[in-house]
Amino acid sequence: MTTTVPTRPDTLPEQSSRRRPVVPGRVLPVVSTFVLFVLLFGVGSVRYEGFTSGQVFANLFIDNAFLIVLAVGMTFVILTGGIDLSVGAVVALSTMVAAATLRAGLPAPVVILLVLAVGTGLGVVMGLVIHHFELQPFIVTLAGMFLARGLCFVIGVESISIKDPFFRALATGTIDLPGGVTITWSVVIALVIVAVAAWVLHRTRFGRTIYAIGGSESSATLMGLPVARVKVMAYAISGLCASIAGLLFSVYMLSGYGLHAVGMELDAIASVVIGGTLLSGGVGYVLGSLLGVLVLGVIQTLISFQGTLSSWWTKIAIGTLLLLFIVMQRLFTRRNA
């Protein structure tokens, strides 16, 4: 293969650049999630006074910053075709580690590094076990969830409040945006993480390998991609995101408690699925997961604006949406199969 031989002169270069569908099929779920979000927000605007304010919109981010981060990590894992049930417990463990070490007098930067190391370390271990012993991700991360929850209570059974000035400052500090809207630093952190994750997934070989593994793990192996390393890294990233979410949650609650974030892994999974990521892996966007979180958030806001509806409707609504998107996915993949 030394020279380029034009075997078919009739194939002109112009011909190979061709039309693409206006809305590619794989973006459709994300688009529909976006439409759903706009609709829900619209419903709120029409029905409730004061719903259509920049601050209500900003609050969606403020109240769900940790969930956004969690969903980003979960997106990595689900894109490889796995699942991580441990994230809610890791959030709780992170709040607990942070609160306990701060109380013990460790400086905030050390505490933050420690929390990140614990979460990432747990993710790495789970990833290693999943890949090298070929165990189902579900059972391994379930054990991880038990472990993390249990460790919370080993540290302490009671809630520990956080009095560290840095954490307090983060919690109370706000950034003023034009239009009288304020956001917290957590929102900035969450959005930066979304941006970084999107870049990693779409513009690095590591990210593309994540998609490749989700598309077909055996193919990825045969294509000579570093499947083992990338798969373990996906769980490590999920653990890292969970510990960051845990830090944001400690800032949000200003306490560490073993019963924080119970069931939050389900919210994270639901956000990812509602955001259009296929549970079988390989297809999805971080931006979709962000939209998924916002949909959950707007439902919560709607219910609180309604006043007469109780909070459990949130769970039912999430479950129903989850079902809707899962069945949609099923029909989608069946047609393609």
Binding site: R26, R208, Y211, A212, G214, G215, S216, S218, S219, A220, L222, M223, G282, V283
Partner: peptide
């Protein structure tokens, strides 16, 4: 290979 060993999603 006989089965296409590529990633259909990419």
């Amino acid at each position: 290979y006989q089965e296409v060993n590529l990633c259909p999603n990419l």
